[in-house]
Amino acid sequence: MTPPALHSSIDLVGGKPAAHQAPPASAPVAPRRRARPHPAWGLLVPALALAAVEGLVRAGAVPAHLLPPPSEIVATLAQLAHADLAWHVLASSLRVAAGYAVGALLGIAIGAAVGLNERIAALLDPTFQALRAVPSLAWVPLLLLWLGIDEAPKLVLIAIGAFFPVYMGAASGIAGVDRKLVEVGRMYRLGSVALARRVLLPAALPSLMTGLRNGLSLAWMFMVAAELIAASKGLGYLLSDGRETGRADIVLAAILLLALLGKFSDTLMRRLETRLLAWRDDLARAK
């Protein structure tokens, strides 16, 4: 008679003993990544808004002289393109590029000094925090008095707009670097330049890139403020000209161009950010 303890080790089909095996360990299941939305999703809201405006104006619910339909704005852009629209776009773009370059470089330099040195921070940061709250239009009369109505006040105003976000990004980014990383760099006897290049700058780069992107958007805003006051060409001049002549279609066409140029420049800056921060394993890359 077979002992009861052996029944569990006998194959009931073949009558042969079967070795005890531990249940196979389940392999770790990788988290399922959700499919990223197509970039065309970003066009859905503007397309619906434009279609709604077109329908409301065509139906007579909205006066056409106050809010021209998108089809009329496209026609206005076509007319301006045959005139001097390219020169207006080029003038505004060059002003933004020059003013942004100056403001960003100063913001990085002074922000880095404030972030690295507590004495410099105590000396300069309160003043910059106070000046940061001054509206853009408040600078215009002073700049016109000091620099006249040529290109200089426009470039200075754009540089002021770009300076403060970049300054904040650089100062907060460097001041927020983990102290353990700095101590490790000093253990490896890195000099000041090597420590800044290999430790401080990479650690502060996410905050700095955010400041650079915000500074670029403010540069476009301050450019409009500068050209609204005194300019004979540029998108801000088109806005002023449309207001004075009662042409809402020109005003909206200029606003549309500003939005497209701002989005294009921010896309370039975002691609640069993605490339420089390719080492970062953040939530956006995990999706």
Rank of each mutant, 00 (worst) to 15 (best):
L195M: 13
G60L: 06
P135L: 03
G161Q: 06
G14I: 02
G103L: 13
K263T: 12
L143W: 11
M223E: 01
A98T: 14
G215A: 00
A254D: 06
L276D: 00
G115V: 05
L181P: 03
R275W: 11
A51I: 01
L67G: 02
F222R: 00
L256Y: 02
R280W: 01
A75P: 11
A248L: 08
L260N: 03
M269G: 13
R243E: 01
D150F: 05
G15N: 03
G234H: 05
V166P: 08
D241E: 12
A19F: 11
L137P: 02
G234P: 05
L48F: 07
E244Q: 05
E227P: 15
A259L: 11
V184S: 07
A18E: 04
L195F: 03
L90G: 10
G42F: 09
S71M: 10
G15Y: 06
P63H: 05
T2R: 14
L190F: 06
A22C: 00
G211F: 05
A122D: 13
G173A: 08
V96F: 11
K154E: 07
P141H: 09
V134E: 14
A152N: 02
A286D: 10
A22K: 07
A5S: 15
L257C: 13
A162N: 06
L56F: 13
L238I: 07
T267L: 14
V102Q: 08
E151D: 14
G14Y: 04
A138S: 15
L205H: 00
P4C: 00
W279F: 08
G42L: 11
V57I: 09
G111M: 10
L144A: 12
I174D: 01
P37F: 11
Y237K: 07
F264K: 01
G103P: 05
G161F: 07
I160D: 03
E244H: 00
R36K: 11
M221H: 03
G148I: 08
S192D: 09
R36S: 13
P31T: 13
L12S: 12
V166M: 10
V45N: 06
I120L: 15
A104D: 01
G215N: 02
A284K: 12
A286V: 10
F163H: 08
T2P: 15
I250F: 10
L239S: 14
P70E: 04
L239I: 15
K233W: 07
L67V: 15
R33L: 11
Q79K: 09
A109H: 05
V193Q: 00
M187F: 00
A35N: 04
L276R: 04
